[in-house]
Amino acid sequence: MKTRCKFAAMISASLLVIGAGLIVSQKVSAAGEGKITGTIKLDGTPPHQKPIDMSKEPSCQAKHAGHPITTETVVSANGALQYVVVYLSEGLSGAAANAVPSEQPEFNQTGCQYVPHVIALDVGQSFKVVNSDQTSHNIHPQPKPGAGNQEWNKSQPPGTPPFVVKWNSEEVAVPVKCNIHPWMHGYMAVVKGPYAVSGENGSFTIDGVPPGSYTVSAWQELYGTQTQKITVAAGKPTTADFTFKAK
């Protein structure tokens, strides 16, 4: 009777170990994962980007050559659209969806602007809020009430150290504003699973996508969300281009 119990315990323990190993190996098997690349374009004339007059904050104005422009639609000469968040809105399995990247991106307040203007984050991913200016900032993200994230705001006098925070629920996207400088505006997109934000040339790459069928979403602050259904194969890139229509 006693030995039997022991045997059963050993069996279940080894099963547990194997199971855990399988889960872990699924996470780290980079070779078997695909990626999604693409370019985001804007079709039509972008809205006028009004220059920002920072004359009331001379230390910030000094960091810019002329008047910096609003960053709500940043379009390059060939129509490529920057600051678009691309993420997998459907199709991710539990493990891949719940993995939290360990790197800590930085959300910087510099020259009285948020750099980057749009930051994408995984649920539970820590990020650092930095004040590089010679003035106080009061960063104030305003998540939708009831969506699971708490609204907060925090002052950072010049010279105070960065602080680290994270978001607990998915939300695309949390608007962020500075309570001291009304023109300062940005977004934090909180998603589950891999994500990317389009760069200056409108291109993006989402790495580490397990093979499978997905709905890819692209979100832009003025033009909203577009989706595409794609299938990602192991080890090779899949293309998903998006084109937003100017209003």
Binding site: S136, N138, Q156, P161
Partner: peptide, 13 residues
């Protein structure tokens, strides 16, 4: 903690 990060008084504090 919020009013005086690292001991420096914030404007609201």
């Amino acid at each position: 903690k919020n009013g005086a990060p690292a001991g420096v008084i914030t404007p609201e504090y």
